[in-house]
Design a protein around this nucleic acid. Sequence first.
DNA 1: CGTTTTTGACCAGCGC
DNA 2: GCGCTGGTCAAAAACG
Length: 280
Amino acid sequence: MEDKEGLDPAGTEFKSDSTSSWTLAGPDSVSDSVNYFFDRESSILNEFGWNILQPDQSDEFGSLVNYTGPTSGRASNPGGSAEVPTPNPSVSSSSSDDPLEKSTDIGGKQPEIPNKVRKKGQKRIRQPRFAFMTKSEIDHLEDGYRWRKYGQKAVKNSPFPRSYYRCTNSKCTVKKRVERSSEDPNIVITTYEGQHCHHSVGFPRGGLINHEVAFARQFTPAISQFYHPHGIQLHREIPPSTTQSHQVPIEVRESPEPTPQFPKDEGLLGDIVPPGMRNR
DNA sequence: CGTTTTTGACCAGCGC
DNA sequence: GCGCTGGTCAAAAACG
């Protein structure tokens, strides 16, 4: 991947300059973003037994990929998705031209409007998404929440189908997509969209976790891995000094106003990882 | 019998 | 306008 130069030589710290990002922005320059966390070689188990892939500079993909994509998963990037160091292009975003909904609360996507009721011109609403790459033989990894599968689609350029899940909590609009990497069938790519507005059923309730962690865990327990001494650092923002010419700020995404779940100053990790660990 | 999964159909967005 | 693709719906089937 082209941003290898950004990797920390020590390979121990996942710095912002190792953050890969690219844009597939379409003609309208509307895009949304997905953060990918993965590593091909090393892996660690989180509390749910996931093999969270850690950053590894030998990884051709890079480690944390902040993806800014087109409004549809299609390869609308002029550079071509082949050129894009996408672990799996199919993970790339889908439509998202809407401003992030101003709806109520966390994960507070407005109630889904059935296609047949949805008015024309009423576009689908996209929420910030996180994608995790994990090494697992199991497609649907346990993450403490209950999910109901609502669809499955064959993915272009991939022999593996993509599954669509929705949180079973009726008030919760979080969705996730699960698919296997076409490049490495051992890798499962899980993409979360939205935030849970409720507690998980599987998390230990210490009541001591800070709100940021609680927030992070809404996406996935994998994020809690960043507490781990071997954990990777999570960056929610593109470094000012880009390592790629086509890098675009995360702010490009449709959210017109900073969403509460994405603090802009330090990123999510700002509160999760102690400053000493951040090495910034 | 309630819940979840499967799966074909439908729709939206985009490129050509 | 057409074709392609991703995403979602919803009825039927499967499951517990």
